[in-house]
Design a protein around this nucleic acid. Structure first.
Lengths: 122, 122
DNA sequence: TCGATGAAACTACAGTTGTAGTCACTAAGG
DNA sequence: CCTTAGTGACTACAACTGTAGTTTCATCGA
C-alpha cells in the first residue's frame, strides 16, 4: 500500500523519478517551467513526501539530497489499481473499452496495443 | 470540464446513476450497506453535489428528488483523460502496457480487448 | 388542533492540499 | 572574523473533504 500522493506532490515525484538524487533547489529548477512554484513551495512538498517516507533525504553538508523510495512502477500499479477499482469495478477491459469508445484511441494506438497483446500471449 | 467530484461524492453519484430520481433517504439507504454513512452525511454530500450543479434537486412537497445532471460516461471520459494525462503522458498505450506488465491483465482480458480493438477497426 | 416526525438548512470540526512567508543556522568568501 | 547567501524548519492560511450534530420548519396522524 503506497501512501497517498497529492497532485502537486506527484509532480515532484516525476522529477525525482527522472533523476535522483537532487537537492531542493535542483528540483525547484526542474518544475519551475511547468508549474511556476516558488522554492518554498517545492520545499514544503519535499518535506511532506519525506514525512510520508515516499522519498528519502540524505544529508549532504548543509543541504539534503532527495531520492524516491518508491519505484514509479510500484506507484503506478497501486494508483492504477485504485482507479480501475473505483471507476470500472476493477475490470480493465471496460476502461479500455471506454477510452476506445470515447475516441481516445488512434489507429496507431490500436495497432500498438494489438502488438503489445500479441507479445504478451506469445 | 466536469466539476471535481470527491471520492465520497462519487459514491453518491454511482447510486444516482443507477437509479434516479431518488430522495436523500433513498440514497442513504442504498449506500448504507457499503459505506455505513449517516443520513446527515449523505445529505451533506448531496448538497455539495447540487452546489456544483452535478446533480439537480427537484422539489417534491417537503423533500427533494435528486438526479444526475452529468452522464456517467461524460464523467468517466473526463476523469479517465485526466488520469491518463497525469500518469501516462496522455498516451493510452503505456497505460495498457503498464497494466499488462503488472499482470493486471488476465488471458480473458486480453482476448476481450483484442476483440474490442477488432471491432473498432472493422 | 397539536404534538411528533421527517426533511432540509445551517453549523462544526479536524485532516489534507496548494501555496507560500519567516526564522534560524551554517558554510563560504572577502 | 564577520557578513551574507543559501538551506532546512516552522508557521500560515484558505479551500476542500469526510463525517456528522443541531435547528427549524412543515405536515400528518390522533
Amino acid at each position: 500500500m503506497v501512501e497517498r500522493i497529492s497532485d502537486a506532490e506527484h509532480e515532484i515525484m516525476e522529477v525525482l523519478w527522472q533523476k535522483a538524487p537532487l537537492t531542493a533547489t535542483e528540483v525547484a529548477d526542474r518544475v519551475a517551467d511547468a508549474k511556476g512554484w516558488s522554492l518554498q513551495t517545492v520545499k514544503t512538498l519535499l518535506s511532506r513526501l519525506a514525512a510520508k517516507a515516499v522519498i528519502g533525504a540524505e544529508r549532504d553538508g548543509r543541504r539534503f539530497q532527495y531520492s524516491p523510495l518508491v519505484e514509479r512502477d510500484t506507484y503506478l500499479a497501486s494508483i492504477s489499481r485504485k482507479f480501475v477499482d473505483r471507476l470500472f469495478g476493477g475490470r480493465v477491459t471496460p476502461l479500455v473499452a471506454h477510452l476506445a469508445e470515447a475516441d481516445e484511441l488512434s489507429d496507431d494506438d490500436i495497432r500498438e496495443i494489438e502488438e503489445l497483446l500479441r507479445e504478451l500471449k506469445g
